[in-house]
Write a protein that binds this DNA or RNA. Structure first.
Length: 544
DNA sequence: TTGCAAATAT
DNA sequence: CATATTTGCA
């Protein structure tokens, strides 16, 4: 495999590159161009009689370039190659040339030789060339102390590989951001907190840049969705008998008095959430929902540092959520979490790097998941039957009737959200259930039609108020809703659907949630769920 | 040090 | 070709 040959020519160096990647060649050429000095061009096309830049394509070896030739042994450089590497190449040239010089001793008048010497000196001045004689070497090493470790070893100084932001790394990053507080974050602080060897401030800064971009993008989506939902909310009450409330929402043009009221109030709430003053201080806040013992589920975020709302939507997970009392408690629920607006990008997952592929396994090959389809709800036939739709809408208006037979279920639903509940502050406020209309979309099912629900406070997620100064339960006269699909037993699944922050925000994680449903139940293990859920779901959307 | 945006890499 | 990452700069 005579792949390469660094040969000293009278006026330059010949480099054989074992790579036909045009981009790569361009880079190399550029670098070589920089090396040119006093006619000692290293690369064509700067000079016709100097360097020869030959490209060879070698199977499976498309990312390497010859650094030089040492007695027939080939050293390779991984790209990208830096100046230092070229300097090494030059040393080979120099040695070889010197060897030739000795052979033709006494012929100092040779023009070529003189040019060569001049060229070497010139390159040396520019730090591109290191003379091979010991004195100069010693001097160099003193000067380039920071390079000696690389240069002295095998000479294969390879540029530091680009950082791959794996899930783990990103998780650390988000942890750091959350701990610092979004208003105070800086690349350096994050870097310090992350404590990852090799990671530079620039790396973090870059990632932070991307992260912010992502957040703002997400917020825009949220915004659109909320506006859309607010519009669709008009007159929704009249459609309670619609088999598919979701589609009916889409088609509604917005009339009806009560619906209007809801809609307007939602808009108001939204303006709160999108308060420009909050814009820059958004933070991902895993809602700390106490479990039955009152202990906090999340141990990642210091609540003292939680300063504001997150533009990210809430991510709710459901485990064995009882939709009706006939349902066996062991039934696994799948949160369908579709977007009713249909505007949500079907994929909001991190695009895992190829070389990090194993991480993908954790989440499964989401690319294979069916895209949520409004017309055809996600129904992988081998997993569960098509969910039937149950629409539920709630409001605070009207009398709070006694639906004690229903409330436990609803509350159960809400409580079941807790273990892995990721919610923004504002989102949490919306977790209200009130006077409602629940309509079974399939009359022959066991699901009992629910005429109403308890008061808003009853269904309020306990801590929501504490963390949501922006809205009171009175302000947020919001209909809560979730979009559910259940695994069937003898029946098919159900969907609970409604309007409100939760439902809106749920939708933006449609695929995520579905994925979780399709995967084995991560939430079976509370610890697992609180840990795993927190980031892969929420931040897995980062690289949408 | 930071945040941005252009350049570059994948 | 679209994104992701790096680099250069104010």
């Amino acid at each position: 495999m005579a792949l390469a040959d660094a040969t000293a020519f009278p006026y330059g160096l010949r480099v054989l590159v074992v790579d036909d990647d045009p981009t790569w060649l361009k880079i190399l050429e550029k670098m070589l161009r920089k090396c040119s000095y006093q006619g000692w061009n290293l690369c064509f096309p700067l000079s016709t009689n100097c360097s020869v830049f030959t490209v060879m394509s070698i199977d499976g070896e498309t990312s390497r370039v010859m650094k030089g030739v040492q007695h027939g042994a080939c050293d390779y450089l991984l790209k990208p190659v830096r100046m230092k590497e070229l300097r090494n190449i030059w040393q080979h040239v120099y040695r070889k040339k010197m060897h030739e010089v000795k052979e033709i001793e006494g012929n100092d008048s040779c023009d070529d030789l003189q040019m060569f010497r001049n060229g070497c000196e010139g390159l040396e001045e520019r730090g591109l060339f290191m003379r091979a004689d010991s004195d100069t070497m010693r001097k160099r090493k003193d000067v380039d102390k920071d390079h000696t470790d690389q240069d002295s070893s095998d000479g294969a100084t390879v540029k530091k590989a680009r950082v791959v932001w794996s899930v783990d790394l990103h998780q650390k990053f988000v942890n750091a951001v959350n701990q610092i507080g979004f208003d105070k974050v800086g690349p350096k602080k994050i870097l310090d907190l992350m404590n990852v060897p090799g990671l530079t401030r620039e790396n973090v800064a870059s990632h932070l840049q991307k992260y912010r971009l992502y957040l703002s993008r997400l917020q825009k989506q949220n915004e659109e969705r909320i506006l859309g939902a607010a519009r669709q909310d008009f007159g929704h009450k009249g459609t309670s008998d619609n088999l598919n409330l979701r589609s009916s929402f889409q088609e509604q043009s917005g009339n009806g008095t009560t619906g209007f009221q809801h809609g307007s109030q939602k808009i108001q709430a939204q303006s709160n959430m999108l308060d420009p003053h909050l814009e820059d201080t958004k933070i991902v806040v895993p809602l700390k929902v106490p479990d039955k013992n009152g202990t906090s589920v999340s141990d990642v975020i210091d609540p003292q540092n939680v300063t504001s709302a997150s533009p990210l939507g809430g991510v709710l997970s459901f485990d064995r959520m009882p939709v009706n009392q006939d349902r066996k408690p062991s039934e696994t629920m799948i949160l369908e979490c579709q977007s009713w607006s249909g505007s949500v990008p079907p994929k909001q997952f991190m695009q895992y790097p190829k070389h990090n592929r194993e991480r993908c396994d954790l989440l499964g090959d989401y690319s294979c998941l069916p895209k949520p389809d409004l017309e055809h709800p996600i129904t992988p036939s081998h997993l569960y039957a098509p969910p039937q739709l149950v629409s539920m809408s709630c409001s605070m208006e009207g009398d709070a009737r006694d639906f004690s037979d229903v409330k436990p279920d609803v509350l159960g639903c809400m409580k079941s959200l807790s273990p892995a509940l990721m919610c923004t502050v504002v989102d949490s406020v919306s977790a209200q259930l009130s006077d409602s209309v629940v309509t079974s979309t399939n009359s022959d099912q066991k699901f009992s039609s629910v005429e109403g629900l308890s008061s808003a406070k009853d269904c309020h997620i306990d801590q929501a108020r504490n963390q949501a100064p922006l809205l009171t339960s009175e302000d947020a006269n919001i209909i809560c809703g979730t979009d559910l699909a259940c695994l069937p037993d003898d029946l098919s699944g159900y969907q609970l659907q409604g309007i409100g922050w939760n439902s809106i925000d749920l939708f933006q994680c449609n695929d995520v949630m579905m994925l979780n449903g399709l995967q084995n139940n991560w939430y079976d293990d509370p610890e697992l769920s609180s840990e795993i859920m927190e980031f892969p779901l929420l931040d897995g959307c980062l690289f949408a």
